[in-house]
């Protein structure tokens, strides 16, 4: 039987330095029957396939385990192969602030899809749909740049028009009627 202790503290077998992970977050046990089970010892919960487990659950080969903001490559903890352990996968950075900024300062109609997609990123990632989360993130970024580009182009044209009007202002124009 093999027990792997996972958490932020350096007393663990697997140390994850992320503030969303508890000191002693969870244990994964590989028993003599060849079965894996996961025991949660954290306050914030451990998530298997997006669901928060109560205390203990049996793990299948393809289950996805998440502790805090980090997805664990847990199966590699039990291989005796000397291959390097892949890094735990962290939650992608959130684009929501940029999306809302573009709604406030640039072109609103094109920022709305950006905001909606940015909100979806968090939601999908927490439910374990990582591929969809990444594609929602790229969509959010695309719409943000569309809105930003339209705003910038508009303002460049506006200020160009403004300054050309100032520079080309012809004072003699208004004296046509009075100048004989």
């Amino acid at each position: 039987m093999k027990i792997v202790k996972i958490g932020r503290s350096r007393l663990n077998d697997v140390v994850i330095d992320n503030p969303s992970v508890d000191e002693m977050h969870c244990y994964i046990i590989f028993d003599d029957n060849g079965k894996y089970s996961l025991i949660n010892s954290s306050v914030n919960g451990t998530f298997v396939n997006g669901l928060n487990i109560n205390r203990e659950v049996a793990l299948g080969e393809n289950d996805i385990v998440r502790v805090g903001d980090v997805v664990l490559p847990w199966k590699s903890y039990f291989c005796n192969a000397p291959a390097p352990v892949p890094d735990p996968e962290e939650k992608p950075s959130n684009f929501l602030v940029w999306a809302i900024l573009s709604a406030v300062f640039c072109c609103v109609p094109f920022s709305i899809p950006s905001i909606v997609n940015a909100a979806k990123v968090d939601f999908l990632w927490n439910n374990g749909r990582y591929d969809e989360a990444y594609s929602a993130l790229s969509r959010a970024k695309t719409w943000f740049w569309v809105s930003f580009a339209i705003g910038i182009i508009f303002w460049i044209l506006y200020f160009a028009g403004l300054f050309s009007e100032i520079l080309l202002y012809d004072d003699s124009y208004y004296y046509d009627d009075f100048y004989y």
């Binding site: 709604a103 072109c107 508009f154 506006y158």
Partner: peptide, 23 residues
């Protein structure tokens, strides 16, 4: 003032306000 940023939506739709006009 003419020198501040104008809202693209306001100008291009001929006077309809966007949610952040006036910010």
């Amino acid at each position: 003032s003419v020198f501040h940023l104008k809202c693209p939506f306001f100008v291009l739709t001929g006077g309809y306000y966007c949610p952040s006009c006036g910010i």
